[in-house]
């Protein structure tokens, strides 16, 4: 059973006066990702990378085509069911970290666990061990504003992985980081992919970053080209 699979997936946007211009952000994409894979999606700006990732993450509805996550067809699930699916099975990492500014590193991680209904004590333990894992064992009480970009992105990774998702989706996680920090972050993702077995799909336009993944997908004009 694949982790995620899509068939003839399309997403069109309509732009311009009277929505006359049709933009095919995704055009008839077929894709299958197996458990434990570390996949990168690369391609020029506007090629549809984020659009595809958002589809895989059940954040957006396709214009046509089908998506399954672990054999569950997403088409036709309602908002609440999709939210539950994201909460239980998916983890997200964004380009600009998107941490809650008033919460400490630990509390940011705890917050997602709380949404899942994990009790206070195991929540704290899991947050601490996850932060330890991403190398932030010393900084658990810091707020986002008191951390570097690389550290904040590690908190975001800890937050995404604390709930032990089957699939981690990362949209340009290193776009705001310098090259050394990027390398550290990629090594961390590689290590987590191996040790935890979490499937990772990462969007990047950085060719160097792309090669940390064992499988590279290239996109152009809404299509997968390799």
């Amino acid at each position: 059973m694949s982790i995620v699979r899509c068939e003839e997936l399309s997403r069109y946007y309509y732009q311009g006066a009277e929505n006359a211009i049709e933009v095919r952000a995704l055009d008839q994409v077929d894709l299958q990702i197996e458990p434990g894979e570390f996949v990168s999606i690369a391609g020029p700006s506007g090629s549809g990378k984020s659009t595809l990732l958002n589809m895989l993450g059940a954040l957006d509805q396709p214009t046509s085509g089908k998506i399954w996550i672990q054999d569950e067809l997403l088409n036709g699930l309602n908002k609440t069911e999709l939210a539950d699916l994201r909460l239980r099975r998916l983890g997200f990492v964004f380009q600009s970290y998107n941490l809650i500014p008033v919460l400490s590193a630990r509390e940011n991680v705890e917050f997602v666990l709380q949404l899942q209904g994990v009790g206070a004590a195991p929540r704290k333990a899991r947050a601490d061990s996850m932060l330890e894992r991403v190398g932030l064992g010393e900084l658990t009480d810091r707020r986002p504003a008191e951390m570097s970009g690389g550290q904040q992105q590690r908190v975001a990774i800890a937050r995404a992985l604390a709930s032990e998702p089957d699939l981690l989706l990362a949209d340009e996680p290193s776009a705001n980081l310098d090259s050394q920090t990027t390398a550290d972050l990629m090594n961390l993702l590689t290590e987590l992919n191996r040790s935890l077995g979490t499937t990772i799909v990462m969007v990047t336009h950085d060719t160097e970053v792309m090669h940390y993944a064992e499988r590279q997908i290239k996109m152009r004009d809404g299509k997968i080209v390799n």
């Binding site: 939210a83 539950d84 909460l87 997200f92 917050f111 949404l115 995404a160």
Partner: peptide, 16 residues
Amino acid sequence: TREFGTLLAMGAKPLT
């Protein structure tokens, strides 16, 4: 908006 968008993406319910 972005904070709420992020939390919704992670599976938080609007009512929460």
